[in-house]
Design a protein around this nucleic acid. Structure first.
Lengths: 335, 335
DNA sequence: AAAATTAATGCAAACGATTGAAATAAACGT
DNA sequence: ACGTTTATTTCAATCGTTTGCATTAATTTT
């Protein structure tokens, strides 16, 4: 980088001290209008811009927030990042992005990186592998505000922003039942994630409401396209096949639709499917997918707003806040 | 943030000067093994980590790269970010993300932000609105290495990493012709983007190779789902409708497939479609979309590698480099 | 034993900005 | 005319680290 203009350059050229220049630029009342004008003029002429690094060092803050996220290449997360960046931008913060790639080890590295980069606060959605949270605990011990979103834990004293998984699942399963389904399979997320538990519980309670017995044989662990396809193929071939599916994400749902077609079943006539996420793909599948909108963009915004609030208050949460983002049933043709 | 352990803390506790501590930590040969061990032990015990901001100030570098991108919420770009972050991570750089949201004004702001944050280098894919490049010129004048990717311009002396748009388009159109198409429409990107021109030219030359006359009436400007749907609906209703479509991205292609179905045409029998991008949605559409894989992940990696190379060499490109990433035809069922 | 060499450590400036306190200069009251 | 305000400006320390040079202590050479 080219040598940048400093306050000292201006001071020398104008034959005054750096303090005067500094004060003039920030409209300190002690400075006479004449010198203030002179300083500002020269500063503009030379294209002076304050050195943020020096400011960072002095203020011990970077106006930067760290974002630790499993993978960007996933519609839901990219929608969240979009929301986060939006709020950060409006508040003159910058966002540093770190991907864990669903790897615990890498996530631990990410927390180190976030520490060495001295970010002011951190937004985290942890990896599927993560069971131990001491690396995040270390952030908290360093009094760096941390807000967890989507993938959260109660083991740490930290704010949370989550989608209303219970409500979303309830809406989805209730819809399937109202459309006539009685044997509803659930393709579930890992149960160590709160969202996995929440959705299962929403599924459970929707059945309960309609007096349909809960059957554990209808719960499958499948949260990727490939495994969902395989599981669906085997399940759909059985005599007692489900007449409805509620999945953890849209990819799984679309995999089921594909599998159903493959074995000659018609959707939504023979089998009904409700996904989760409302990704771009949901509107493109054939038939178009009924799904739960998670408002990823809004979730990102709220998470960032909560973090900024903590940064402003400059306190660690005595009692952590938990914000729940509504969900919405988007009815299309698959159920 | 909690007050962090500094070199001074260690120095005082050990009754020595900060210089000695600093040198001990960096294994300077002048330091005796005994004091070195003592320093390192205490540093580890106290959990000392060097203050990156202070280092930044001294070295005048931040080990951070700025990324200016139209929108994250788009498969191609998120794949690119993934590749960029991967390389940055491996080389101990951090990535700051700035979205332009396809807005010229915001993009100008992004370049300011990148400047005040004193990033070491910048990766840019500019917005559709951008016709004037003086904001990027300012970066270059400040001798900040800039690498453009995907959306590039020859107006600036800067490195470029692009997808082989000509080849991709040629492959796509050639495929359509070999499958029997003779009236091939092209849903094109804005022609002020180099990628728009490149693809049009690939389209043109593929026709030429098979002695099919170029017909300007078959070129449409449509690069979103909605406009593509509308254009396709009107075009497909005409008597002289195209028998093949080559689009600028997968969304447009899927819009055409939907429109074709709507007017009762069968794919690929009546109309064949080739998209561009190989997004996740491409594999999910019905029929599955034949498309051009752009290797977004690889493109991101290469762009980042090129930037890091410049940073290492610490020179501005006397002659800018241009790296072209191959493309691949992915044949599925739509053509 | 004095001089010269080597080893180990400390001093102080620097990176760019801010800021409390001190200093200077101008203006005022009596 | 002289002390007292008031207005402006400068000094110097600070943020945390690195590093050229000086310093001190220990060791070797003659």
């Amino acid at each position: 980088m080219k040598r940048q203009i400093t306050i000292k350059d201006i001071a020398i050229k104008l034959g005054m001290s750096t303090s005067t220049v500094s004060r003039a630029l920030r409209d300190h009342p002690d400075i006479s209008p004449k010198t203030r004008a002179a300083v500002k003029e020269l500063a503009a002429l030379l294209g002076y811009r304050p050195n943020r690094i020096a400011l960072n060092l002095r203020s011990n803050s970077t106006r930067t927030i760290g974002l630790i996220i499993p993978e960007i290449e996933h519609y839901f997360f990219s929608a969240i990042i979009n929301g986060i960046e939006e709020i950060a931008y409006k508040n003159d913060y910058s966002v540093m992005v770190f991907q864990s790639n669903e790897s615990y080890k890498r996530e631990v590295n990410n927390t180190q990186a976030v520490l060495t980069n001295r970010v002011d606060g951190v937004l985290v959605s942890f990896s599927k592998e993560t069971r131990d949270f001491s690396h995040f605990q270390k952030l908290i011990e360093n009094e760096i505000p941390v807000v967890f979103f989507d993938r959260v834990t109660d083991e740490l004293r930290a704010d949370q922003v989550v989608s209303d998984d219970y409500q979303g699942a309830f809406l989805a399963v209730n819809h399937l039942i109202e459309k006539g389904c009685r044997r509803i399979a659930h393709f579930a997320a890992p149960q160590h994630l709160a969202l996995g538990k929440g959705r299962l519980s929403g599924y459970h309670d929707a059945l309960l409401k309609h007096n349909i017995p809960f059957n554990n044989d209808l719960i499958f662990h499948a949260d990727t396209f490939e495994t969902s396809r395989k599981v669906a193929l085997s399940v759909l071939k059985k005599a007692e096949r489900p007449d409805g599916f509620f999945t953890v994400n849209d990819m799984s749902a679309i995999a089921i639709i594909k599998a159903a077609k493959e074995v000659g079943l018609s959707i939504p006539k023979d089998v009904k499917v409700v996904g989760y996420e409302n990704s771009k793909s949901a509107a493109l599948s054939e038939p178009e997918l009924t799904t739960i909108d998670q408002y990823g963009y809004e979730l990102g915004r709220e998470a960032c707003l909560m973090l900024l609030k903590r940064l402003r208050e400059n306190d660690l949460p005595a009692k952590p806040e938990k914000k729940v983002i509504r969900t919405k049933l988007v009815v299309r043709s698959s159920a």
